[in-house]
């Protein structure tokens, strides 16, 4: 698959991924362009717990404070 096709596929599959992102003094859950809940969690751990119970997402993406990838949890793993 060429780069543009694979990139477009990734962009289009944004709704399948739930991100845990640093925001101001805490962490938020973000998916496909929107916050999943308006809450800002004070710790990354509490955001992860909430994300796991939130509902089905193919992938849970846990970011570092600088926005890069810390780890990925996949539903089928």
């Amino acid at each position: 698959m060429d780069r543009k096709k694979s990139m477009k596929k990734l962009i289009n599959s944004a709704m399948e991924r739930l991100h845990i992102i640093k925001h101001q003094q805490g962490w938020v859950l973000w998916k496909g362009g929107d916050l999943v809940v308006p809450d800002i969690y004070t710790s990354k751990e509490s955001a992860i717990v909430h994300a796991r119970t939130h509902g089905p997402s193919d992938e849970l993406i846990i970011h570092r404070q600088d926005g890069t990838i810390e780890r990925i949890e996949r539903a089928n793993q």
Binding site: L10, I11, W30, G33, I61, G67, T68
Partner: peptide, 21 residues
């Protein structure tokens, strides 16, 4: 600013996925 920051995080995921593959 929040949109840019969240999208930057999403971009990192796609970069990671693409280059890992």
């Amino acid at each position: 600013p929040n949109t840019i920051w969240y999208e930057y995080n999403a971009f990192n995921m796609d970069l990671f996925t693409e280059f890992t593959a």
